[in-house]
């Protein structure tokens, strides 16, 4: 009801949207950088790839065999939305920002 609470309300909604998204991945442990274990695993693999075109989705799948494809895709989508990674030569190749 207070009119001056408007700016803080909009700030809060930005922060919450990120938190809700991480919650969707069903991983309750959140490390210091705000990513889930799954998201960190995917990000670290992409970071570790020395090729100029980046890591492709097939490589991610073969290196994360214990992980369902949908889970890997979710992590990739999240990291892409947050700006941690970006696609290069096509939509299946990713580099870390």
């Amino acid at each position: 009801s207070k009119s001056h609470s408007q700016p803080s309300a909009s700030r809060a909604s930005i922060g919450n949207s990120g938190m809700n998204e991480t919650g969707n991945f069903g991983n309750n442990f959140i490390p210091a950088n705000g990513l889930t274990v799954t998201q960190n695993q995917v990000l670290n693999l992409i970071k570790a790839c020395p090729r100029p075109e980046g890591l492709n989705f097939q490589d991610l799948r073969s290196q994360l065999q214990h992980m369902p494809i949908a889970t890997i895709k979710q992590a990739v989508d999240f990291l892409s939305n947050e700006g941690h990674i970006y696609s290069t030569v096509d939509d299946d190749h990713f580099k870390s920002t």
Binding site: N81, E82, G83, H84, Y86, T88, V89, T97
Partner: peptide, 20 residues
């Protein structure tokens, strides 16, 4: 190359926006 640079720039902007 242009596509890659554009994607990278967009990703950096998103990352920056999250860290404001």
């Amino acid at each position: 190359l242009v596509r890659i640079q554009k994607n990278k720039a967009a990703a950096l902007l998103r990352l920056a926006a999250r860290n404001v």
